[in-house]
């Protein structure tokens, strides 16, 4: 589960994809996420997945994506099995298509989050007219994912050191065993949020509504080229997928 989340955590790096304007990357993720709802043909979805993987390779984040894939394996298997159960065994290809759709959807957004800093994402939201307080909440939620997962691990270690065995017992017993882990985590995080709020207010947060920003986003030549590439690819894929001209 935690490993899956790591596929949505910004990974510092330098690649043509990292340098793209975040707005272009958002367009990319949105269009690819939308494209996977056009057709349920496995070959179409696999082509989308391969295109996504190529982008991840260019962005040099493929290792992290593979880590996410390992973490999300249980969900993929679950989607496949449930579909198989409800659609009938004859529809095995359909079950596979739903699983692939989920994977393509995740991969498209994973690329965005892996290569774009939370600050850049929040800047885009501010440009879209969302109040800064809300975008900040979003940025901080992302920023605290690794901290939270680290803390969760420490708490699990501390309770296991006192003899807690999470892997033993039936389903309900196991859920009950998570209480000694969830309570310290929640209490700790609430305390931290108070401290954080105080620290931010001490540095003048909320003093004025007209705040200024250190970075200004600018569309460059590469961004225009990438955008043109995305649009043409989307048109071609949408046309092929929709018109059932998909050759396989």
């Amino acid at each position: 589960m935690l490993r899956m989340l790591r596929g949505f955590e910004y990974l510092r790096g330098d690649s043509p994809i990292h340098r793209l304007d975040p707005r272009v990357k958002i367009v990319y993720s949105m269009t690819f996420a939308a494209l996977c709802f056009i057709s349920l043909k496995n070959t179409f979805l696999i082509t989308l997945l391969i295109l996504n993987i190529l982008v991840l390779i260019i962005a040099k984040v493929i290792k992290r994506w593979l880590m996410m894939l390992r973490g999300s394996l249980i969900f993929l298997v679950m989607i496949f099995t449930l579909n198989l159960l409800f659609q009938g065994l004859a529809n095995v290809w359909l079950a596979l298509a739903y699983t692939l759709r989920f994977l393509v959807f995740m991969t498209a957004f994973s690329m965005l989050f892996l290569t774009t800093t939370p600050e850049d994402l929040s800047l885009v939201m501010v440009k879209l007219g969302i109040p800064y307080e809300y975008t900040l909440a979003f940025t901080m939620a992302i920023r605290f994912v690794p901290t939270l997962s680290r803390e969760l691990q420490i708490i699990i270690d501390a309770q296991r050191s006192r003899g807690l065995e999470l892997e033993k017992g039936n389903f309900f017993e196991r859920i009950r065993k998570y209480m000694p882990i969830l309570i310290p985590l929640i209490v700790h995080e609430i305390r931290r949020s108070y401290l954080l709020a105080e620290a931010m207010e001490s540095r003048g947060f909320g003093y004025t509504r007209n705040r200024s920003y250190y970075y200004e986003m600018r569309i460059r030549k590469n961004d225009v080229l990438a955008l043109l590439g995305i649009i043409s690819l989307t048109v071609v894929m949408a046309f092929l997928g929709k018109k059932v001209m998909w050759p396989f």
Binding site: E151, I154, I155, D157, A158, Q159, R160, S161, R162, G163, L164, E165, M179, P180, I181, I183, P184, V187, H188, R191
Partner: peptide, 23 residues
């Protein structure tokens, strides 16, 4: 040996009490 087995012989007190207090 599992952590639970070894924990009976080795008591580990973590640095931050807030990481274990829950009751």
């Amino acid at each position: 040996h599992t952590v639970a087995e070894l924990a009976r012989r080795v008591g580990l007190v973590f640095q931050n009490p807030d990481h274990q207090i829950f009751a």
